[in-house]
């Protein structure tokens, strides 16, 4: 059991959902990323997802696109993000997953990239442009290094695809709550709760379910956890706080921690 799987097991025994907090590696600067991760953890994040910026992020909305541009302009590279992960890992046992696009991995070579990722202390990978048909090689190679390749399922996913996705996914199953790209939304996607129920039928509880895309407010977290999700992923809302306090580090630290703790307050203990 790696850190991600262990964390879900611990939380489930406490009847608590996992708050998975996202930050773009290198935003606003590679030097600051270990601190940002620390603020997320201090605020109560159970798992941290670190983005590796890519020039053409087709699954991302304006907030995360802008974060990627800031990171690349500040000189972030896959190597610098892994360096930040290594720095966090020196004094923290927080489960860490990287989110990036497949070309970043493919370009370096799958085995080489995974060796570096595992050595840095990553526990999982999320690759939004790698659907299940293309994922088997990466999933297997990750597994061989004790890492999870987390698969995504969407409201449009058919039952047949759901089965293949559940079989291939490790760590948790990432449920895309709405039709669209990442980004904070005022209200929860219409099909989000129904998607949780559908996913539950396919996993039979074997794999934790985390809902992401558009989750930005405490009430979203409450609704989704209440509906049976084992976790939520919050990205753009956190990135927006960073974007709003680029010139004021203390405000950034306070803003990130307080947003995260307000979200974490809603993850349970749940009653089902």
């Amino acid at each position: 059991m790696n850190r991600i799987e262990k964390r879900f097991a611990e939380l489930s025994s406490k009847k608590e959902g996992a708050l998975i907090a996202y930050v773009m590696g290198g935003d606003p600067s590679p030097r600051l990323t270990p601190d940002v991760v620390r603020w997320l953890v201090e605020g109560g994040a159970d798992i941290v997802e670190v983005g590796i910026p890519f020039s053409d992020p087709i699954a991302d909305g304006p907030s995360i696109q802008a974060a990627g541009v800031r990171a690349l302009r500040a000189g972030a590279t896959p190597a610098s993000v892994l360096e930040s992960v290594r720095a966090v890992r020196r004094d923290s046992d927080v489960p860490l997953a990287a989110m990036t696009y497949y070309n970043i991995i493919y370009s370096r070579g799958v085995p080489d990239f995974l060796d570096a990722a595992a050595a840095a202390g990553l526990d999982g990978l999320i690759v939004p442009d790698l659907p299940v048909e293309e994922a088997s090689q990466l999933a297997e190679a990750a597994r061989g290094r004790g890492m999870d390749l987390v698969q995504l399922a969407a409201p449009t996913t058919s039952d047949a695809r759901f089965r293949a996705i559940v079989d291939c996914s490790a760590g948790f199953l990432y449920l895309v709550s709405l039709m669209g790209v990442t980004g904070a939304r005022g209200s929860l996607g219409e099909g989000a709760l129904e998607l949780v129920a559908r996913a539950r039928r396919h996993t039979g509880g074997r794999l934790p379910l985390a809902v992401g895309f558009g989750i930005s407010k405490p009430e979203h977290v409450r609704a989704v956890t209440g509906a049976g999700a084992d976790g939520v992923v919050v990205g753009s809302a956190i990135v927006d706080v960073i974007a709003g306090s680029l010139d004021d580090r203390p405000a950034m630290a306070r803003g990130v921690s307080s947003l995260v703790s307000s979200l974490k307050a809603e993850t349970g203990p749940y009653r089902r």
């Binding site: 087709i58 699954a59 497949y102 939004p128 442009d129 790698l130 659907p131 299940v132 048909e133 293309e134 698969q151 995504l152 399922a153 969407a154 409201p155 449009t156 996913t157 058919s158 695809r161 996705i165 895309v176 039709m179 669209g180």
Partner: peptide, 22 residues
């Protein structure tokens, strides 16, 4: 491996949400 290959090239590297539309 997915459909739509020319040798090893091509394929369908898109977010899951798009796959059913394709």
């Amino acid at each position: 491996m997915s459909a739509g290959r020319f040798g090893r090239f091509g394929g369908r590297f898109v977010p899951e949400t798009l796959v059913p539309a394709l």
